[in-house]
């Protein structure tokens, strides 16, 4: 199972960050060619990410690049360069409809064909950052076999909604639910938006707990010190692991006896309970707190 608990934004024109971001061990490093790069530096950032991706060994950390939209003068060159640089993922900004994904996919495929890369090598993530994107989340999520996930981008969204980010995130309730449901229908990842106040660790943790409880797979982060905090929240506790292992053991025992009804500590164990237990163990394994050889 590939975890995407954290996708670390790295400004694409920062030489130090572009070469070192993986040492903080996020699940995914995301080089940004879009909002964090000024118009005057778009070319330089593109060359920097292109050259660095082709050179550095990121030690198994997944790499993504957020490109500029195809409706800007930079999007097409970003794709041309990045497909050649071969990150694992290209992230599409401000996706509003399925056609936006199809347009990017057409460009990627054109370059893949040109350089002899197997079609479909470069995967996609779509960022949903506008009211229209939120309303079309399902069609976006189901639009391409390259899509590994959709990600909510809240800063632009709250501005369009004529509100601001609050601590409890009430203004994002609908968008988060919509993005999450769309991702689950499509069978892909759902990634939450960034938390911009890097000084407020308590507020950040509360938001991570909230999005985990909602069902999100992870969160975009902007500071390396946010990575450990997210991973800690997402790592199953000893008690959760113990409980999950007991459920799975009870299932195996019942199956070996040919028993149809399974109970543990006087409570019925049904399919959703088993599925949750398997998920807990998979997450624990991927988080490195349970050995790989443990049976799910």
């Amino acid at each position: 199972m590939k975890l995407r608990r954290t996708m670390l934004y790295v400004p694409g024109n920062s030489a130090a960050m572009v070469k070192d971001a993986h040492i903080y061990r996020p699940d995914t490093v995301m080089f940004d060619l879009e909002d964090s790069v000024s118009y005057r530096e778009k070319d330089a950032a593109r060359f920097l990410v292109y050259q660095t991706l082709r050179t550095i060994d990121y030690g198994g950390v997944e790499t993504a690049v957020r490109i500029n939209g195809l409706d800007t003068p930079y999007g097409k060159d970003d794709i041309e360069a990045m497909v050649r640089a071969r990150p694992n993922i290209i992230r599409i900004p401000k996706t509003e409809k399925a056609q936006d994904v199809a347009d990017v996919e057409t460009e990627i495929e054109r370059v893949e064909r040109k350089i002899g890369l197997p079609i479909g090598t470069i995967k996609l993530f779509a960022a949903i950052e506008t009211p229209l994107g939120v309303l079309n989340a399902r069609e976006i999520a189901c639009s391409s076999s390259r899509l590994l996930g959709i990600a909510l981008g809240a800063e632009d969204l709250v501005t369009s909604l004529r509100t601001t980010r609050s601590k409890d995130g009430i203004e994002l309730h609908y968008a988060r639910s919509q993005v999450l449901y769309a991702a689950r229908v499509a069978g892909i990842n759902a990634i939450d938006t960034v938390y911009s106040n890097v000084q407020d660790e308590e507020g950040f943790l509360a938001e991570v707990r909230l999005i985990k409880q909602l069902g999100f797979d992870g969160k975009s982060v902007i500071q390396p010190n946010q990575i450990k905090l997210v991973h800690r929240v997402y790592t199953p506790t000893e008690e959760e692991i113990h409980k999950a292992l007991r459920v799975l053991e009870a299932i195996r025992e019942a199956e070996s006896k040919g028993s149809g009804v399974i109970a543990l500590d006087g409570r019925m164990i049904d399919k959703p309970v088993v599925e949750r237990a398997r998920w807990t163990i998979e997450l624990a394994k991927a988080s490195g707190v349970v050995p790989e050889e443990v049976k799910p």
Binding site: A15, A44, F47, Q51, T52, T55, I56, D77, A81, R84
Partner: peptide, 28 residues
């Protein structure tokens, strides 16, 4: 790093040549 030097020099040269249409095939 070498890759950073390559990237910055390439950007500087294209800027100095006034070229914004990049020949990606040749840059590979």
């Amino acid at each position: 790093l070498d890759c950073t030097i390559r990237a910055r020099l390439t950007a500087a040269v294209f800027r100095a040549a006034g070229i914004e249409k990049y020949p990606w095939e040749e840059l590979e």
